[in-house]
Design a protein around this nucleic acid. Structure first.
Length: 287
DNA sequence: TTTAGTGT
């Protein structure tokens, strides 16, 4: 009797220790996860309301950026990263090779865009991530989970000019920026469901949100650029409010923003302070 | 090939 009681106690103790390990481990994991998200986002990662297969996604952690991966669209619905001003003469390492990403589940190979007429367009950009976050982050931007089918005129010209403006014009003005970028799909899922490059659904447009993450004086600039552009259009032709991007993507950006500030930051189109006119017509590098 | 790529 006494023997079985002490064995029971011993087992109880072991179980207690195991539970303690799980609790502490889960707590550390959660802490680390939150830390990681805080480093790469501002006012929370994008969320969505209700259950919709087209907005449902899971967060992939990369070095230098997060990606909200949709298994339904085989696209990242958003990528989130921060940049800061770097020296004018900053050089980055040579372009890494594109790389398949096993986390996507879909077998998206580096050659799966070949002959499609679409470029493998970066969502989180090579240059900005490399210049700010280093080589291993740069390598992660070449994961196929960070690619989306983009028409060459957009990717190599208009979109490239926008990305260049972020690092060469906006970042030096404000020191630090929060950027969220991603694809936009036609309103009706069935209209576009078979419009794919391999497994990857082809977006009709792309958005980029650029925010000065200042508690008091939040400035935000947002763009939507369609696939079919010539490439030399002025950047400010594509300005939109964050609200418009939210309504076209079904996502909620900066969910931790108070509703009063959200109304201003997301609902109004304010370009004061950005000196957009200085870069809007700057030519691209590749034409 | 200056921060974007494809294709030979």
């Amino acid at each position: 009797m006494g023997k079985s009681l002490s064995r029971w106690r011993r087992q109880g103790k072991r179980l207690g220790i195991a539970v303690l390990f799980v609790v502490v481990g889960a707590g550390l994991w959660e802490f680390q996860e939150r830390q990681h998200k805080d480093d790469y986002t501002w006012m929370g990662v994008p969320t969505w309301d209700g259950f919709h297969p087209t907005t449902f996604h899971r967060v992939l952690r990369n070095d230098g950026f997060l990606a909200g991966w949709s298994d339904v669209r085989a696209n990242a619905l958003w990528v989130s990263y921060q940049v800061e001003a770097v020296a004018d003469d900053t050089r980055i390492g040579s372009r890494p090779n594109f790389k398949a990403d096993w986390r996507t589940l879909w077998p998206i190979g580096t050659d799966s865009y070949a002959g499609s007429g679409y470029d493998r367009g970066h969502l989180a950009p090579n240059y900005a991530i490399a210049a700010v976050h280093g080589r291993s982050a740069q390598v992660d931007t070449f994961l196929m989970s960070n690619m989306t089918p983009q028409r060459p005129n957009l990717n190599r010209q208009l979109w490239q000019r926008l990305e260049e403006s972020v690092m060469d014009h906006f970042a030096p003005r404000f020191d630090r920026l929060q950027v969220i970028t991603g694809p936009i799909f036609p309103e009706r899922f069935m209209d576009n469901v078979f419009n794919r490059v391999g497994f990857v659904e082809v977006p009709e447009a792309f958005y980029k949100i650029i925010v000065v993450p200042d508690e008091e004086a939040t400035l935000a600039l947002a763009f939507i650029m369609p696939q079919d552009v010539r490439g030399n259009e002025p950047l400010d032709d594509y300005l939109v409010t964050i609200d418009e991007i939210e309504s076209r993507t079904g996502l909620n950006f900066f969910p931790d923003l108070s509703s009063e500030r959200e109304a201003v930051v997301e609902g109004l189109l304010r370009t004061q302070g950005w000196a957009l006119e200085e870069v809007a017509r700057r030519p691209g590098r590749f034409q």
